[in-house]
Amino acid sequence: MNTVPGLGYLGAFGEIGRFGARVIGIVWTGRAFRFFGESLRQAGILIFGSGLIIWALVFIFGLQCGLNGAYFVRAQGAPSYAGLFAAFCDLREALPYAFGYILSAKVGTGIVAELGAMRINEEIDALEVMGVPPVTFLCGSRLLGAWIALPFIYLVGIGIMYLASYIAVVKQVGDVSSGGYSLIFWMFQDPTDVIYSLVKGMTMATVIVLVGCYYGYTASGGPVGVGTATAKSMAFNIVAVHIIGMVGTLVFWGANPRLPIGG
């Protein structure tokens, strides 16, 4: 046991950084395209296995954004400005966080469980013996699959979150008409914000997939070891998601809030 708090995280951070750079290098230099079929299969698993649950959590977060926003602007005496709160909350903050939470819970831990079981059953060693490079085949194809599928899941999630906020503000609380809400809501966002938000979400997704691959690939110690590795990856991902969210906000909107008000 280390005595300084956080030292374990730092050590893991270094290891994951080295492993992650290797996997990103594999995808970047095109070596992962050798197993493009496997990448497409992983993308399909993401869409059919995780899409619905991602959108479900995104929908609930959208409801929360709309609800809290509607009551907050009612307190300010400006109920028609629920759209301002919802636009900022949905697109810039809540969606990346909801996406990061459910990805680390569903996709990250899923990868650890799958790769960890393969490691324990010595299937990864078998791959190596067969002449298939295991990091390329298992981790590179998963990262490529995530990069193929997740941007679209994220963009659909934006629509689902907007729908949820609309329901909470206009139908549930009902202080503002549909048109009044939409006017302010669409006024306070532009396509650049969508790109920034997407970059934030995909950074989280990349880190989560790499962390999952690292903990699964290096699992040891029988079935118990797989469970422990899964728990560890989740703990690391939670902290990583929040740090990426904060840094993303600081970089994209920290100096310039991108508001269509004043000069």
Binding site: I53, L57, Q64, T109, G110, A113, A117, T230
Partner: peptide, 28 residues
Amino acid sequence: GAAGVGLAVNQAVVISLVGVSFFNYVFT
């Protein structure tokens, strides 16, 4: 077996997150 514990952790944390955020919405 080996994949079982990992899958259990996976499902547990997904269900917890969805349950918690849904309860948060209803309670608020």
